[in-house]
Structure formats: C-alpha cells, structure tokens
Design a protein around this nucleic acid. Structure first.
Length: 287
DNA sequence: TGAGGCACTAACGGGTTCTG
DNA sequence: CAGAACCCGTTAGTGCCTCA
C-alpha cells in the first residue's frame, strides 16, 4: 500500500483497445491529509467520485471544493491538481478511460473542461459501479471480454452521473423548428449510414424536402454541406481503423468507399498522407 | 418566410493504366 | 498490394428566382 494513503487499491485493464470507450484502470483510495496530486497532464480521461471527506480540484483556471457525492473529471491535455483536505481528507474511487466516443459521452452528461464537476450523485451506487469495473479485470483468461465488460459498467456509471447532474445535461430546445428537427435527423442518418453509399437526393426525398433546400438548411445548421459532413465522419473513422490491423481495402469499404484507390486519394487529400504512410507514421511513433 | 425550381459550376466517384 | 495520374460521366452546392 502507498504510504500516502491509508487505503489504496487499483486494477489495470490488460487489454489494449482502440474501441469507442475503453477503461484503462480503476482504483479506490483514501489519501492522507493534504496529499497532493499534480500539477500534471494526462493523455486520458480520469474520473474521481468522492465517497466521503473533502478536497479541492483545480483545472482550466477553476478551483472546485468537492465533498461526498461530487465527481470531478480530468480531461486529456488539461493541466490539473487535486488536494485532500487537511481536517477531513477525502475517500474516492477513480476510473481512467479513453476512446473516440468518450468526449461526446461526457458532453452528453453535461460536463466539459470548463465545467468539470458533477454534484449530487449517490455515493453508494457510484461505488458499486467502480467496484464492478475493477472486478471485471480479475476474472478470466479473456482480456478482450473483460475490456468489454468494464466498458459496459463505465457506461452505467456515466449514466448515473448524467442522472445526478440532470440539470447540467444538454436537452433539445423546445423552440426547435420542423426543419431544424429534420436537419438533426439528416445528421443522425449520415452518422449511422456512413458505411453505405449515401445519396443526398435520396436523403432529401426521405425527409420530404427538396435537395437544394435541405442542403441550404443543413449548411446553415452545421456549417458544412451534407457531403462535406459525411466526408468528415468517414475520414475520422478511417483514421481510427488504420490504427488496427485491417487492410486499406477493408478500411475503405468499412467507411463507405467501394474503391480503395479512390479512398486512398481522398484520405491523402484530407490528412496530407496516404493511408499506408499514415499507418507507418503511427507505428513509427508507437515504437 | 418557407419551400422549391432552374441553371451553372465545382467536386465527386470510379475506371484504366502504370509504377514501385 | 498500394499509390499516382488522368479521364469523364454523375452528383452536389449555390445563387437567383418565383410562388403560396
């Protein structure tokens, strides 16, 4: 046990994953009075929930005084520091995670680097989810399955946080017009159908609008034309898939390109490197 | 003001061929 | 297997306009 903690336990995920959400490690501890972590920067998200006691958390030029039921979130690349109280040092659990959907999920539960604390969760149920995440890593000879299980518990934990901070959760404005609603539908459609051949003409017909009008409204709402938006989704997804062992051909067809050569051309235009070059640069960095 | 038609231009998408 | 260059038909984006 650490001499700076009266209680300390941590479980590490042995599986390396590039999925949308993946737990890296999780732990629980009770640091000694005035125990300080940071200033520092992480390259992953790190969530702490306070079960009892007090402490302060600093990030993005803000200081938060946290107590039982509060959760603070450290964002990748953000300078942070947190310190246990002198009189009544906190007892907390933490979970570190990564994944391309992590940022969106945190945004959906109402937190951001500028507003990185959620108050009012039930310490008992939160502690339960942290324990289930840790126990995911202690059971089988199949690390990939444990990774999936831990990510599942993490989702439930985030849902619990979202409920606790319901007043912070983003909701759709009641004043949304019919066309704004249809543009949201179109966005959703593109996000789900990017693996298929998509026709804007067909999409507009499905929503009951003329193609030119939908294009105009879409651009007004998102800042991008429908095809540009689709292109962005496809390229970002392709970049993630290039980090796996898939061939260029498989990556191309996975993001809606029937022709790998054409995909290669488009990826080069978007990222500045051809897919194979991008992959080599990645493995170069990794070694 | 919302909806959409017309016409023009730009970009896309995919085929072919060649190269490393 | 992957990338580059070129070509060409198709499709998307957009400005301007009319209509209800």
């Amino acid at each position: 046990m650490s001499t700076e903690h009266t209680y300390f336990t941590v479980s590490i995920n042995p599986h390396e994953s590039n999925s949308e959400l993946s737990v890296l490690f999780s732990g629980e501890g009770k640091p000694i009075a005035l125990h300080n972590t940071g200033p520092g920067v992480h390259d992953y998200y790190l969530v702490h929930t306070v079960h009892s006691g007090n402490g302060t958390f600093e990030m993005h030029n803000r200081t938060y005084h946290c107590t039982a039921g509060d959760t603070f979130i450290i964002y990748p690349g953000e300078l942070f520091r947190y310190t246990a109280d002198a009189e009544n040092p906190w007892h907390y659990s933490w979970v570190a995670f990564t994944g391309y959907a992590a940022g969106v999920m945190l945004s959906q539960i109402g937190v951001s680097p500028q507003n990185a604390v959620i108050t009012g969760s039930v310490p008992r149920s939160m502690r339960h989810y942290y324990r289930r995440i840790r126990s995911s890593f202690q059971q089988s000879m199949y690390p990939a399955l444990e990774d999936m299980e831990a990510a599942g518990w993490l989702r439930l934990l985030l849902r619990e946080l979202g409920r606790a901070g319901a007043h912070q959760v983003k909701t759709k404005p009641a004043t949304e017009t019919e066309i704004q609603r249809q543009v949201s539908q179109a966005v959703r459609y593109l996000e789900l159908q990017y693996t298929q051949v998509v026709s804007i003409e067909q999409l507009a017909r499905t929503l009951g609008y003329h193609r030119t009008y939908l294009c105009k409204m879409f651009k007004q709402a998102t800042g991008l034309a429908p095809m540009q938006y689709l292109f962005k989704i496809r390229m970002e997804r392709a970049r993630q898939l290039l980090e796996t062992a898939m061939t260029i051909d498989q990556v191309a067809s996975s993001v809606g390109f029937n022709d790998a050569l054409y995909f290669s051309k488009q990826f080069h235009k978007w990222s500045g490197s051809a897919p194979s070059v991008y992959r080599k640069e990645l493995t170069g960095k990794g070694s």
